[in-house]
Design a protein around this nucleic acid. Structure first.
Lengths: 106, 106
DNA sequence: TGTATGTGCAACTATTCGGTTTTGCAAATT
DNA sequence: AATTTGCAAAACCGAATAGTTGCACATACA
């Protein structure tokens, strides 16, 4: 079973859950209230997110609060870095072209 | 059939293809040479990437060169922005705590 | 013109995925 | 003690996915 952060964020419901609990911890029921699906389904998503360590649990009585492991999000950012270099270069190249045109206009 | 960039990058082979063609356009055969899979399989991934507009084709004789639409990668970056704000805040909070400790030490 | 090459597409298979239903357990409430 | 509430886990199902094999088609080259 593949279980990495990229597979975790592939599902739109899971992305929504991540956004939802980014700022405050929530229980499965509270999370499920925000979606058109059952709590069990949300629970399954939470399990996947937990396995990927994107989410951490905190038991409080019979309730379990789920919150985001924000640092995990940085892994995506890290992967994006290789492309960031490219698109910044492209942007600078465009910038150079624009400067050249301006120079020629003078 | 879901077809968005997050689903596209969920597959490790597709991520590798994206990285591979990020800097230079390549033909399906050339791409497949880098993997332990058939050309047809790579072709299928390329079709998905094309449908998501992450990749563009350029026919040259009987060869088709595939290259990366780098701008599409920015969509992931855009989604990450909401979390970037949080982790920068956390970092600053940590920074504040550290400063406070230093202050107290004085 | 005949053959080799580069490619996409369709059919098929095994596996995975997302969701629902059911079950069971522990904590809270009565 | 009995009931309710919050939750996870298992069993099941239909749909999607990744990969393979086989085929068709166009371009290149002899």
């Amino acid at each position: 079973m593949r279980r990495d952060i990229f597979q975790a964020i592939a599902d739109p419901t899971r992305r929504a859950i991540i956004t939802l609990i980014a700022l405050q911890a929530m229980t499965p029921n509270a999370i499920a209230d925000n979606f058109n699906t059952t709590r069990q389904s949300v629970s399954k998503h939470l399990r996947i997110l937990t396995e990927c360590e994107i989410v951490k649990q905190e038991q409080q009585g019979r309730e379990i609060y789920y919150s985001l492991e924000i640092d995990k999000m940085k892994e995506i950012d890290k992967w994006l870095n290789q492309f960031r270099k490219i698109w910044e270069t492209r942007f600078n190249q465009l910038d150079d072209i624009l400067s050249t045109i301006k120079e020629q206009e003078k």
